[in-house]
Each structure stands twice: as C-alpha cells, then as structure tokens.
Simulated assay, not measured.
Amino acid sequence: MKINIKNMVCNRCIMVVSQIFKDAGIPTENVQLGTVTLKNDLQPEVLEKINARLKTVGFEIINDAKSRLIEKIKAISIDYVYQRNEENKLNFSDYLVAQLNLDYPYLSSLFSSVEGTTIEKHLIHLKIERVKELLVYDEKTLSEIAWEMGYSSVAHLSGQFKKVTGFTPSYFKKLGEQKRTSLNDV
C-alpha cells in the first residue's frame, strides 16, 4: 500500500514520518519524500489515526489525485535543487516531464491553479533557499554556488537573489541564518 503525504520536504521529515509509523507498529517498506510504502494494507480507522498524528507535526495524508501530483512536483523540485548532479543538468521542465511522463503545459497549469504561483517561480524560490543555506555554511565561493545551482553567471545569481530576497548575496551572508525560509513555506 502506498500513502502520499503532504509537506515532506527534507530528510528530517522522512525521519519523523518513519518514526510515526514505527510508533504505531506499522511496518514500512520505504519512506521517501512525499510517500510511504507499507508492507500491508491498513484499515480506514487506522489510517485516520495515523493521519491525525501526522497532522500534529505538519503533515497530512493526500487522497485526491491532483494533490498527489502537486506534491510529486514539489518533491521532484526539491530533489532537483538539492541533489543537483550531472544527470539533471537538463532543463527543469524536461526533467519534470521525464519524471512524471506527463505534458509540461498540463503540469504547469495544474500547479499554477492550485498553488497560485508558477512552477518556475517555485523552483527559483527553492534555488534561492538553497543558495541562502550555502551562503550561511560559508564553505563555497559565490562562483562555486552559482555553478552548482545552474546559473550562467554570478551576476545572474546575484540579480535573481536580490529580486527574491531584497538583499545582495554578500549582505545576506552578513545577516546570517535568521533570514532563511522553511521549505514548507516556499
């Protein structure tokens, strides 16, 4: 049985959701961003109890197909930004189509109608949050961060960063971590 869960955005979310199922005595096969695969089916009343527990920590079981697809788009976006490697140097729209095997215009229209923003803007905000994180860690230069995040230049990254945050990357770095946003809120 596969259960789709809303608001899972990081490895810590995976740990929390795994622990909820473990505490309930429900064996899982796999827990990843947005989904939990169970070894056995659950009775509806057990599923409701799990959902109530998930809601106390900011998660929720998703039952309708459109919401599941939106959550998949978000999970793929997060994975694309945070696990960037040579394989996904593809244009994000092509990457998303390859992952979901659905037309991009449909995905874009659905996402915009439900979320009130475009997939592109959502991706930009995710990338900027990742840049903020990398700036706070202070382990890479701005040039290295720009390259890692797929920007054509430091100037392009800096311009987009300022447009989204209102700060230059160097000024943000001086401010530190207090200006970061949770991925749930992106």
Rank of each mutant, 00 (worst) to 15 (best):
I26Y: 00
I20G: 09
F59N: 02
S18M: 03
V16P: 03
K74N: 03
A65F: 13
E86W: 13
E86Q: 06
D103H: 09
Y104V: 15
E120M: 10
S112M: 15
E115T: 09
V131Q: 11
L90W: 04
G159Q: 15
I145A: 03
E115V: 02
M15L: 15
L142N: 05
S18L: 04
N11H: 04
A65Y: 09
T37Q: 14
S93A: 04
H125C: 11
D138V: 03
A75V: 13
Y82S: 14
L42T: 07
Y95E: 03
S77W: 00
L42R: 01
K66N: 13
A75G: 12
K132L: 13
D64W: 00
N91G: 07
M15C: 12
I3D: 03
V136Y: 02
E29R: 13
C13R: 03
V186Q: 03
L100P: 08
T141D: 01
Y82I: 00
K22M: 04
E139W: 05
S182E: 00
L54K: 02
S153C: 13
V46Q: 13
L135C: 07
D79Y: 14
G25L: 00
S18C: 04
N30I: 15
T37Y: 04
V17H: 07
V57L: 08
S108H: 15
F161Q: 02
V57Y: 13
S112A: 14
S77L: 02
N184G: 12
E45Q: 12
F111P: 03
K74A: 09
V57T: 05
R180E: 02
K89E: 10
S143W: 02
K121C: 11
Q160N: 14
K72S: 10
G116L: 04
K132W: 02
I3K: 07
E133M: 14
F172M: 02
L38C: 08
G58Y: 02
Y106H: 11
N91F: 06
T37P: 07
I70M: 08
K121T: 13
F21S: 11
G25R: 03
E144S: 00
K173H: 01
Q32N: 11
F21E: 06
F59M: 09
K173G: 11
K140S: 14
Q32F: 14
L33N: 12
P169G: 10
K140W: 10
S77I: 01
E60P: 05
A98K: 09
K49W: 10
A65L: 12
I124K: 01
V9K: 05
K127A: 15
S158F: 02
K22N: 14
S93D: 10
V114W: 09
A75R: 10
S143Q: 09
I145H: 08
S67W: 01
V9N: 04
L123D: 08
S108K: 12
A146E: 05
